[in-house]
């Protein structure tokens, strides 16, 4: 909650670092963190969702292979897809949140070309016209 506090417009790097440390300290850390972050990224409060995306990207950079393995599952990718889809939360989330989610998934297709599920998820979004460019 402290790492994604919507009452604070600036990123709080100290709390973000503490979040990453806890992810790394626990065997179940990556899967638990991703469930929490998915929930926050789906928040209708734009600042909370944007903070959660920053935390997610920081974890991708700092939490290593176990985190990458968990985030490359459809279980988590589906939660990001829901933010973009008008059938799910697409009408609640702001354009800025949606464009950052799209950019994050696209960047993973580049940085993790071996993760087939990320490629599948992104191709599906393009095929359905949800990602246009």
């Amino acid at each position: 909650d402290k790492a994604t506090d919507p009452g604070v417009p600036e990123e709080n790097w100290e709390f973000i670092q503490q979040f990453c440390d806890r992810v790394n300290a626990d065997t179940e850390g990556p899967s638990l963190a991703l469930r929490l972050l998915a929930h926050k990224i789906q928040s209708p409060q734009e600042v909370e969702a944007l903070h959660a995306l920053t935390v997610l990207e920081t974890c991708v950079n700092n939490c290593g292979e176990r985190f990458h393995h968990a985030m490359a599952k459809f279980r988590f990718l589906n939660e990001l897809i829901k933010v973009l889809s008008p059938k799910y939360y697409g009408t609640w989330s702001s354009e800025q949140v949606k464009s950052r989610v799209t950019a994050v998934v696209f960047s993973w297709t580049v940085w993790f070309p071996q993760e087939v599920k990320i490629q599948d998820a992104y191709q599906m979004l393009k095929k359905q016209g949800i990602v246009k460019e």
Binding site: S31, F74, R75, L77, N78, L84, D120, A121
Partner: peptide
Amino acid sequence: TVSFHDDSDEDLLNV
């Protein structure tokens, strides 16, 4: 502590 590693997954959501 014994930890159960769940390696299962869901299907890709159809939007």
